[in-house]
Amino acid sequence: IGSLMYASIFGNVSAIIQRLYSGTARYHTQMLRVREFIRFHQIPNPLRQRLEEYFQHAWSYTNGIDMNAVLKGFPECLQADICLHLNRSLLQHCKPFRGATKGCLRALAMKFKTTHAPPGDTLVHAGDLLTALYFISRGSIEILRGDVVVAILGKNDIFGEPLNLYARPGKSNGDVRALTYCDLHKIHRDDLLEVLDMYPEFSDHFWSSLEITFNLRDTNMIPGSPGSTELEGGFSRQRKRKLSFRRRTDKDTEQPGEVSALGPGRAGAGPSSRGRPGGPWGESPSSGPSSPESSEDEGPGRSSSPLRLVPFSSPRPPGEPPGGEPLMEDCEKSSDTCNPLSGAFSGVSNIFSFWGDSRGRQYQELPRCPAPTPSLLNIPLSSPGRRPRGDVESRLDALQRQLNRLETRLSADMATVLQLLQRQMTLVPPAYSAVTTPGPGPTSTSPLLPVSPLPTLTLDSLSQVSQFMACEELPPGAPELPQEGPTRRLSLPGQLGALTSQPLHRHGSDPG
C-alpha cells in the first residue's frame, strides 16, 4: 500500500511539474524568437521594450494561443456562430445594431475584428487614413492633437468618421493612444458598406441611429477645401490634362476667341504652333527640309505637354522668318557652300510665315494684346468667377478644330508651292551661260556676264508674291485673308516669265 501511494503521488507530481515546464519551455522559446528578432533588426531601446511588454501581456492574456488560427480551423457556418458569440456584447448593447435580422448580425459579426491594445500603444496616428470604424468594449483611450489631450473615450464609445457622408476615406486629425488595456472591435469601411448593401432595409436605420462619439476626420483635408492638395495627390493619381488660365478682364471677355491653345513656353509662336517648341509643326519652317525628324516628334510632343491658354504674339512682318533660324542665316552668309535649293526654301518659309499670320487673323479676328503681368498667370479653374468647365471645354474643342483646319490648309498650300517650284525647275534647270562666239564683223562684242542661278530668282519672285499679296490685293481696312490656291498659281508664272525669257546656255562643266 505504501509503495502504491508513493507511486501515485510521485507520478502525479511529476506530471504536474512536467506540464509546468512544458508551458515555461514554450514561453521561453517564443521569447527567444522575439529577442532574436530584436537583435537581428537592431531595434532601439524604447521600441524594444514595448515589443517585450506586449509579448508578455499577450502570452498571459491568451496563454500563447493564436485565436485567429484556431477560429480559421472551423467551417464557415461554425465561424459565424463563434463570431456572433464573441461580439454578442457589442451587437446587443450598441444602439445602431438593434433591430437587425439574424442574418445581418451574422454577416456583421464575420466582418468585425477584435484588437487588444496595451497602455501607451498608439492605435491611430495623425494623418493616417481612416479605413475603419472603432467600437470600444473595454478600457479607455485618449485622443491628442500635438501634445494636447482633446478627448478621453471609454466603454461603448465610437470613434472614426461617418462613412455615409464621404465617398473616400479621410485623414485623422489626431493621435489615438490607449490609456489602459483596451479591447476594441473594428470593422473596415469596405466590409461595412458591403453588408449594408446586402441589407438595404437595415442601412437607413443604421446610419440614422449611429452616433460617433469623436469624429477623427480632418475637415481641412476634404477635397475642394484650401488644404486638400495632399489628399488630392493621394487619391487622384490618374489626373486628366491640367489647364491653367490667364485672368480675363471685362474688356477681354467681350471679345470671342481671344486665346489660343499652345504648349508651355510657346507664347511667341504662331497660331498653328503645336507639339515641339520653336515654330509651326514643332520646328522652324525654314529647317523643315533639312530635319525630317521633326514630323516624327510632333505626335509625342503634342500628347505629353499640358495645355496652356495664352494670348497671341505680336504680328510678324511678311518677309521675316518666324524666328530662331540660325540654319538659314548661316546659309545666307556662306552662300557659296550651301545647297542652291536652300534659297528657294527660304522664300517658301517667308510665304508660310505670311500665310500663317494672315490665317491666324482670319480665324481669330481680334487685335493683338500685350501679355498680362506675371502675377495674373496660372489662375486655377476652381477659383470664384471662372467660367463653367463645359464652356471652357467647348472653347478648347473649337480652337482645336480651327487649328486642324489651319494645319490642313497650310499643308495644301505648301504642296502647291512645291509643285510650282518643281515645275519651274523642270522647265528651266539651273545653269550658267557659256561665252558666246564673236560675230564675223570687226565690231565684236565682249563675252556675256554669267546669269544668276535660278534659286536666287525664285527667292526674289516669291518675296514679290508675298509683298504683292500682303499690300496690293487686300483693300484698305479689310481683314488680311489668305489668297486662294488658283490665284497664287496664276501669279507665280507671271512673275517668273520675264526672268526666264532670256536664252540660257548650259555650261560645259555643268553635270545637269
Rank of each mutant, 00 (worst) to 15 (best):
L399G: 03
K251M: 10
I136N: 01
I212Q: 02
L481Q: 07
S286Q: 13
P264Y: 09
V150L: 13
T219G: 08
I379A: 08
I222G: 12
P455I: 04
D330L: 14
S272C: 05
M414Y: 04
R246A: 12
T500D: 14
M198W: 06
L474V: 10
R237N: 07
F345D: 09
G174I: 01
E473M: 11
I143Y: 01
S140K: 13
E194G: 11
Q467T: 11
R389Q: 04
P438I: 11
T456S: 12
E161P: 02
A412Y: 05
V451C: 06
L403P: 01
L163W: 08
M328G: 09
F245R: 10
F345T: 13
E320P: 06
R405G: 08
M414F: 12
S304R: 12
N156H: 10
P318R: 13
D250L: 12
S446A: 09
E232K: 10
V435F: 09
T436Q: 10
L399Q: 02
D460S: 05
E142N: 04
R239G: 11
P223R: 12
N350F: 03
L262V: 09
D175H: 08
E232W: 06
Y166P: 04
L153N: 01
S140A: 06
T253S: 13
G174M: 06
N339H: 14
P315K: 04
N215V: 03
A267M: 12
T249G: 09
V348T: 13
P256C: 12
G127A: 02
N220V: 10
P256L: 10
V435D: 07
P162Q: 06
T500W: 10
Q238I: 11
G360D: 07
S291N: 12
S140F: 09
T416L: 07
P306W: 15
H205C: 10
L504Q: 05
S509P: 09
V148M: 12
L420P: 05
S203T: 08
R247K: 08
P318I: 15
I379V: 10
P321E: 10
E320G: 08
V428Y: 09
Q402E: 04
P453E: 08
E161T: 02
R387G: 07
R177Y: 03
S461A: 10
T445V: 09
S353Y: 04
V149W: 01
V259L: 10
L410N: 06
S383G: 09
S358Q: 13
S466M: 07
P370G: 06
N220T: 10
P292N: 04
N339M: 08
Y432I: 12
G497T: 11
H505N: 12
S463Q: 11
A132E: 12
S137L: 04
K333I: 10
P340K: 15
A151Q: 03
T416D: 11
N404Q: 13
E332W: 06
P264K: 14
G257C: 12
C369M: 06
G477N: 12
S375P: 08
R246H: 10
G174P: 02
L193W: 08
T219S: 10
G160M: 01
L376M: 09
G270F: 05
P384C: 04
C369H: 07
A478C: 10
L420M: 06
Q238Y: 09
I187T: 01
L449K: 10
Q495F: 15
G263Y: 10
L192M: 08
H205A: 13
C471L: 05
E298S: 11
L243G: 11
P370R: 08
T500Q: 14
S334E: 07
H188R: 08
I212G: 03
L231P: 13
S358M: 01
L504N: 11
T229E: 10
P455A: 10
L449A: 09
P482V: 09
E232S: 11
T500S: 14
Y134I: 03
L396H: 04
K333G: 09
P340G: 07
L366H: 08
L144G: 07
V150D: 03
I152R: 06
G299W: 08
N156P: 03
S334W: 05
R145Y: 07
D204T: 13
F245Q: 10
S461H: 04
L210S: 03
S346E: 09
G265M: 12
R241T: 11
L377W: 11
P429H: 15
N156A: 04
P475V: 09
D510T: 09
L184S: 01
Q400P: 03
L457E: 07
R316E: 12
S304C: 06
E230R: 12
H205W: 07
A344V: 09
S411L: 07
A498S: 12
P292S: 13
R423G: 07
P475G: 10
P169V: 12
E254N: 08
S294V: 05
A498M: 09
R389V: 15
S313L: 11
T229Y: 11
A415H: 08
V259P: 12
E296M: 04
G323A: 14
S244E: 09
P442W: 08
K155T: 13
T445H: 14
A415D: 12
P482H: 04
D397M: 09
S375I: 04
D297P: 12
G170Q: 02
P200E: 06
V195S: 02
D252A: 10
K155R: 12
A151W: 01
Y181V: 04
A412Q: 04
G257V: 08
Q422R: 08
D157G: 04
D252M: 08
L163Q: 08
S353Q: 11
R274N: 14
D183A: 10
V259N: 13
L163G: 08
A132T: 06
S291L: 15
E320C: 10
F159R: 01
F159Q: 02
G439R: 09
A344K: 09
G233N: 07
H505I: 13
G146K: 13
D197A: 10
D336F: 07
F468S: 04
L243R: 08
A470S: 10
S209C: 09
R401P: 01
L499W: 06
E480R: 10
S383M: 05
E393C: 15
P455C: 09
G127I: 01
P493R: 10
A478T: 08
A132D: 12
D510N: 13
Q483E: 15
R359F: 10
Y363C: 10
V435W: 09
S394F: 07
W207Y: 12
P429I: 06
R308F: 05
F159L: 06
R389N: 04
S375N: 01
A478P: 10
G356Y: 13
N215G: 02
E232V: 11
S342D: 13
S509G: 08
P306K: 12
A371Q: 10
V176A: 06
P200S: 04
S446V: 12
I187D: 03
T373W: 11
P306I: 15
N378L: 03
S349H: 08
A267K: 09
P372S: 09
R361F: 14
D204R: 10
A344R: 08
L499A: 11
D250A: 07
F312R: 14
N378C: 13
D250F: 04
S461N: 13
P318T: 11
R237H: 07
R145M: 09
V259T: 10
S236H: 10
A267R: 08
Q422I: 03
L366M: 13
Q362M: 06
I379S: 14
P430R: 13
Q483G: 11
S304Y: 04
P429M: 06
V417T: 01
L454P: 15
L410C: 06
S466H: 10
L210T: 06
L129N: 08
R177A: 03
L474N: 03
D175W: 07
L462V: 08
Q238C: 12
R274Y: 07
T416Q: 06
I222T: 14
F245N: 12
I158R: 02
S172T: 01
S209D: 14
P311A: 12
R308G: 11
T458M: 12
S228L: 12
G512P: 05
H188I: 04
R359N: 15
E230M: 11
F245P: 12
P256I: 14
R239V: 11
L420R: 07
P372C: 08
G497Q: 13
L457R: 09
S303K: 13
D460Y: 05
P511T: 07
P438K: 15
F202K: 01
F468K: 11
M425L: 10
N339F: 15
E232A: 12
D250N: 04
T219E: 07
C369T: 10
F206S: 01
P440A: 13
I152H: 05
P380T: 04
S225P: 14
A261N: 11
T131K: 09
